[in-house]
Design a protein around this nucleic acid. Structure first.
Lengths: 364, 364
DNA sequence: GTGAAAGCGCTAACAG
DNA sequence: CTGTTAGCGCTTTCAC
């Protein structure tokens, strides 16, 4: 038998079989069913593999054959840089990653990119995965639709909630924000502003803007809308005029946008004594902005957040905590062990009101 | 032609071709080479695809055929939860992710898990990727070796640096830390401690421990060792006895471990006036610990970090900043466009000493 | 225990 | 512009 010192071409299962004069099945078994062949033969196979630089069955070919990719996909419809700047999102990813680690699956970050329409869909369609988690997309996001079309297990996180036949993991946004708003209203605030994340597509080119009634009604970000509605309802229930609520959206997920939103809110109604943000990062950015303006929290301004990220706790932010890590874990479990029934699962996680040091009664 | 209302089986390229009475090539072309067929035919194909629920060529089969997976793998040899708790690592990931986004590649987080020997290697071997970035592994980490054995483009990040034939991206740990140490020594400190990340495998069950001379020499974490050596050399050059340097390793990547390390350092030499940490997170945890002990920084204790994470800047930490995001970007570029020569690339990124508010002269 | 046969779903020449 | 021909590297019955 001629000895090939350095195989030019990558070794394959077939070439190994040829080298050893055994069938391909035997090589396959050596890797996948060690009990199906003698230990001695197996050792010979493994030795030859090492000699030829064969590192085991090609993952792609195996996936094609077994129809299992060994990874789940995570679709985040924001640019990854933004996503990575929100600890809440990060905690979710960590939770999801943990479950992947536990079951030995990979986690594929699907590169959606800034242009969601074109390449994002393509990326979703060409992801070699066994299922998708889609993180808080707009209800009409093309990537979300593409993921669903792949007909793999999908779990939608946070929003939209009402997709037929699709599993969902999230919280009760309305109830959580309602409780928080009642706390704020209960403190005696009558002039309130709410600052939300963007409510429309990414085409908006201003950093922040006032939210008109119909924009709120038409938004594809139901979670954000629910949180805003909760504030209005809490006001109405307390006998305040909900139409007085100043609504501003921070169009981009950066500090400048949040600052601009705060500025707009204060300008829209200078008597505002409480700013409720729909995310802790927003609240923190707003607080930084206020500090620059010499406005004290909570003395002159009550600030609330949403999410319960570590930094919020450190800074004593009044907020609603949601179990972000657990959300990731639940999503992972749903993906790794899809319900046999094929029925979608709706999983509402608990939230907890945290009365911090950033909320207090309004000052005359 | 019988019309199948709801195809039981997932539609394939072949079934679409049969349905339309065209060849498989034509279908393939409709997706991959739109210019190779008439617009009219292409529309018919796409329409039929939609009708049959065909979302385009199966990514796995395509990968097998084209020999390109469309994703790069990121191997982090720490449990993902730890990795996600270090902003420096996160920035690296963000940079890498950005480049993936730009070229439309996926980013596969390879689930190494807590047990690196067994399943970790398996995970690396079964990752369907076109290349690996391996983040700061021990020089003898089995996953690192496995990644290299896959014979795909590999770029090692931070350490180990001297792997033959493997690209590397990182900084000059020795020089960076040397400069920082000279700053500290220059302030007049003579009793110095250094707290490093773990230097051995994960089997150590204490939260922190003193580092013996031979452990330092034998560690597989060359980057950490270089940083420690730099401190000693700076001391020696200033006429101090480097053997007086208290060396402690925080065995786990958590606050408790850092606190324990600080405690050990202070007990080993109560006259210590400067604690140099090999990571900003360590420094921050140590500062939190000191605050609890009522020890003021920098009045009673000088603290330095390493990495230049945002929180370090916010807190005025004296540290060495390294371009973490850029590191991720460079790694990504190397993976997406491997040098045609096949020659490995060694990329040393610049660092910058940041004199913050946590270092000052020692108090008598 | 081991081997032979039959594809998984797709793309890349190369003819027409 | 369209079709034919050959696999990519592997797993999996099913016989032997």
């Amino acid at each position: 038998m001629p000895r090939s010192p350095l195989p030019r071409r990558r070794a394959t299962l077939a070439s190994l079989a040829a080298e050893l004069n055994v069938s391909r099945t035997t090589i396959s078994n050596a890797y996948n069913r060690p009990d199906q062949l003698s230990a001695e033969l197996r050792d010979r196979v493994l030795a030859a593999a090492k000699r030829l630089g064969y590192t085991g069955p090609d993952p792609v070919a195996r996936s094609l054959r077994t129809r299992r990719a060994g990874a789940v996909g995570l679709v985040i419809t924001e640019p990854l840089t933004y996503a990575f700047s929100d600890p809440a999102a990060l905690e979710f990813v960590a939770g999801l990653a943990e479950t992947c680690e536990e079951v030995g699956q990979g986690l594929l970050l699907v590169a959606v990119g800034p242009d969601p329409g074109g390449r994002g869909v393509e990326a979703v369609n060409s992801a070699g995965v066994d299922g998708f988690a889609v993180y808080a997309p707009a209800a009409d996001d093309p990537c979300l639709l593409a993921a669903i079309d792949r007909r793999l297990p999908v779990v939608v996180v946070d929003q939209p909630r009402d997709l037929p036949g699709v599993s969902w993991v999230g919280i009760d946004d309305y109830r959580a924000m309602r409780e928080l708003a009642e706390h704020v209203v209960g403190l005696g605030h009558t002039d309130i502003a709410v600052i939300s994340m963007r409510l429309g597509d990414r085409s908006c080119d201003c950093p922040a803007q006032l939210v008109a009634e119909d924009r709120l009604r038409a938004t594809e970000f139901h979670g954000q809308a629910d949180r805003i509605s909760a504030v209005r309802d809490a006001m109405a229930d307390a006998g305040l005029d909900p139409s007085g609520l100043v609504m501003v959206e921070a169009c981009r997920h950066v500090a400048e946008s949040a600052a601009a939103a705060a500025e707009i809110a204060l300008r829209a109604n200078p008597r505002v004594t409480a700013i409720m943000c729909t995310a802790d990062v927003l609240a923190i950015w707003v607080m930084d902005f206020l500090r620059g303006r010499g406005i004290y929290v909570p003395g002159q301004m009550t600030i609330t957040g949403f999410d319960g990220i570590p930094e919020a706790r450190n800074r004593g932010l009044t907020t609603v905590a949601q179990p972000n890590l657990e959300k990731g874990r639940r999503a992972g479990e749903l993906l790794h062990h899809p319900p046999r029934s094929g029925q979608p699962v709706i999983e509402v996680l608990p939230t907890e009101l945290i009365r911090g040091r950033t909320s207090g009664p309004p000052t005359g």
